[in-house]
C-alpha cells in the first residue's frame, strides 16, 4: 500500500515541535518551515530521520535532491516522488 506521505510529514513535524518543548499547532501544507513553523536545520535533520523511519527512505541522502525546501508542500513533493513506485 502506498504510504500516506502528507500524514507522515505532519506527524514528524508535530513530534519535532513536541520533543523540543514547543507548542504544537495545526500544520498546513502552505506553511513556511522556517518562517511559520520555526524549524531550524537541527529540526529539519530530526524530521528527515523520523521520516526515514516512517516512510523508509531519505531523499536528501542522494545528491540529486537539490530542490529548495521552504514549505511543508515542498517536503511533501520530495517525499512523494521518493516513495513513488519505480523510484529508488
Amino acid at each position: 500500500m502506498r504510504p500516506d506521505v502528507p500524514n507522515a510529514i505532519v506527524t514528524a513535524i508535530a513530534t519535532v515541535l513536541r520533543d523540543t518543548g514547543r507548542d504544537t499547532r495545526p500544520i498546513e501544507s502552505g506553511m513556511l518551515l522556517a518562517g511559520d513553523l520555526g524549524l531550524d536545520s537541527l529540526d529539519l535533520a530530526q524530521t528527515i530521520v523520523l521520516l526515514e523511519r516512517s516512510l523508509g527512505c531519505d531523499p536528501f541522502r542522494s545528491a540529486s535532491t537539490s530542490r529548495s525546501v521552504r514549505t511543508v508542500a515542498d517536503l511533501i513533493a520530495i517525499y512523494d516522488s521518493a516513495v513513488a513506485p519505480g523510484a529508488s
Binding site: 536545520s41 537541527l42 529539519l44 535533520a45 530530526q46 528527515i48 530521520v49 531519505d58 536528501f60 541522502r61
Partner: peptide, 12 residues
C-alpha cells in the same frame, strides 16, 4: 551519533 544529510551528525 546518527549520520544526517543536513547537519553531518545528529545526537541520538
Amino acid at each position: 551519533g546518527l549520520p544526517s544529510p543536513v547537519t553531518g551528525e545528529l545526537v541520538a
